[in-house]
Each structure stands twice: as structure tokens, then as C-alpha cells.
Nucleic acid binder design. Structure first.
Length: 290
DNA sequence: TACCAGGTTCTAA
DNA sequence: TTAGAACATGGT
């Protein structure tokens, strides 16, 4: 008996469209009101909302269990996280009501590192453009589950375009200077190259770094040229499941100044400050748009 | 057109 | 130790 080429799952507190707009990932794309596609972990995935917290994923059950369950952080009980919000934290309560369904992804460390190096002092649309150019130039072409998807009415048919995996360090280092210039990374080009070189030479063994303490991991990440505390905290939060990390960017600083009197005690949420940060960030960026 | 963007590095005090 | 300038490019 052949395995079904899709997986259906009931998932509470999960909103792919909000995740796509949350700023933690740059390769998720909203196709329509109930479909999202993404490229991650070297694969293509489409997610369809079926109603009543039920979702269809364009992959076999085995792939869903092996890869996407962890990537999408489905083991965590987000209702429990929500229950931790203090009664007097009015702003965060509003942020939760607005952003319910956002999960913190467990992304690939190298991809997250390079993406957030690119992110510094740029808008999210601009980051997305730059990341896509890098993938198209240096990334491996991905085999699409086209035939199997088209045979299912659950999913949106794929456009006839190519999808590329995020490149590894070797693939980035193989780019010519002209190619690297053409992705439009500007002065961050040198940061990308030196981070890639550190990983290639094994000075930065990103896989083994997952065993480090928060303090050591932060120290190692910030030792990379072009990686400061903001980018390091984003990598820790979005790729190393360090949910206590609280990246402070211009948006979050604005929130702290406006709603928290200029200082924010992250010890209010010792193990979930990063999740709270993401809710705040999403709320502040999107509340005026919708 | 001018301004700002999920910051970091470098330099001078 | 800290404040401030410089940094490349894209989106609005």
C-alpha cells in the first residue's frame, strides 16, 4: 500500500498566514486566504486550512512527523504560554488577542544566521527580495511534489516557476564577487562571506552549538563578524529554540518606550520572553494595517 | 524625492 | 565605557 502524499492534522493555536507575516521567516508566501507555501529544510511545503483547526500539508505523514512537526513547534502548548501573561500586562494581552496562532519556528541555524545578518537595517520586503535572490543564485533546485499536489483538490496548483533551497556555506562561497554583489546585500556582503567561511572552516560548528548554554551560544554567535546582540538573539530564538531570548529591534524598543515606560523586565516571562516578544512585534507592525 | 528599514562596527572622547 | 558617525540598497 502506498503512503498518502498529504497529511491532515488538527492543530490548535496555529495560523500559517500570521506566521508568514510575523517577520521570523522570509520564505513563507501567502497564496490565498487559506493557502500558504514555504521553502525550508531543503523542501517545499504547502499548507491548506480546512476549517475547525484542521490543516492539510503537502507531504507524506512520515515527512510531517520527521521534519515539519518540530519545525512548526507543534509540541509546545501555546495555550499554556498564553495563560502565563500577567493580568496587568494590558499591551501583551492585546498583542495575544491579535496574534493568536503565531508559533515560533525551529528553523535551520545557518539559514537563520544569514537571513538575520541580511535583515539588519532593512525592511522585511527588502529582506525577502535579497534572500530570494541569494537562493536563486546559489541554492539547489528543489524537486516539487507537483503531480501529487495537482491530483489533490486540497492544494493550490503550483505556478510554473522554480523553487530553490537555501544555500549552504559552500554554495555561498562559490559565488563570484559579481554574483554576490547582485543580490543587493550592500555592506552586509562581507558579513555573509565571513560567516559562511567560519562555518565552512568549522570554526563555527552550528550543529554542535545547539548543546551550548545560552550564555556560550550567545558569546559564540556574537563573535562572528557582523553579528551583534540583536541578530544573535534572533538566531537563538528562531533556530535554537531558546524561547527566553528577547531580541530588541527598533519596533520592540518603540513598544518598550511607548507602553512600558522605557524599560521592560524580561524576567516576567522567564522561559517564554521570546514568544511574548514575537507577539508584541507582530501586533505593533500589523495593527494599523488591518 | 526623501525617508526609513527586525543593526553592527569603528572611532573618538 | 559610551556616544555618534558611517554603512549600501530597496520599498514606499
Amino acid at each position: 500500500m502506498t503512503q498518502a502524499q498529504f497529511t491532515i492534522e488538527e492543530i490548535p493555536f496555529f495560523d500559517p498566514i500570521k506566521i508568514a507575516n510575523s517577520g521570523q521567516c522570509f520564505r513563507w508566501k501567502i497564496l490565498d486566504a487559506s493557502h500558504v507555501e514555504l521553502v525550508a529544510l531543503g523542501r517545499y511545503l504547502q499548507i491548506a486550512y480546512l476549517g475547525s483547526e484542521r490543516f492539510a500539508f503537502s507531504c507524506p505523514r512520515s515527512e510531517f512527523n520527521d521534519l515539519w512537526y518540530n519545525y512548526l513547534d507543534l509540541a509546545r502548548d501555546y495555550h499554556q504560554v498564553a495563560d502565563c501573561i500577567l493580568p496587568d500586562d494590558t499591551y501583551l494581552r492585546e498583542a495575544l488577542a491579535f496574534g493568536e496562532g503565531i508559533r515560533i519556528l525551529n528553523q535551520d541555524p545557518f539559514e537563520t544566521l544569514i537571513c538575520f545578518i541580511i535583515s539588519q537595517r532593512r525592511s522585511i520586503p527588502s529582506i525577502t527580495t535579497c534572500v530570494e535572490r541569494l537562493c536563486a543564485l546559489a541554492g539547489r533546485k528543489i524537486d516539487l511534489p507537483l503531480a501529487s499536489l495537482e491530483s489533490q483538490e486540497l492544494f493550490v496548483n503550483l505556478p510554473e516557476e522554480n523553487y530553490f533551497a537555501f544555500p549552504n556555506c559552500e554554495e555561498i562561497l562559490k559565488l563570484t564577487p559579481e554574483q554576490l554583489d547582485s543580490i543587493g546585500a550592500g555592506y552586509r556582503k562581507e558579513y555573509i562571506l565571513r560567516a559562511s567561511l567560519a562555518v565552512f572552516s568549522n570554526d563555527a560548528n552550528l550543529q554542535s552549538w545547539s548543546n551550548l548554554s545560552d550564555e556560550s551560544l550567545f558569546e559564540n554567535l556574537t563573535s562572528l563578524y557582523g553579528v551583534g546582540k540583536k541578530v544573535a538573539n534572533c538566531v537563538m530564538l528562531f533556530a535554537y529554540a531558546r524561547s527566553s531570548r528577547f531580541p530588541i529591534d527598533v519596533w520592540v524598543q518603540r513598544i518598550i518606550d511607548k507602553y512600558y515606560g522605557g524599560s521592560y523586565d524580561i524576567n516576567r516571562y522567564p522561559s517564554t520572553a521570546g514568544i511574548m516578544q514575537q507577539l508584541m512585534f507582530y501586533y505593533e507592525r500589523n495593527k494599523s494595517i488591518t
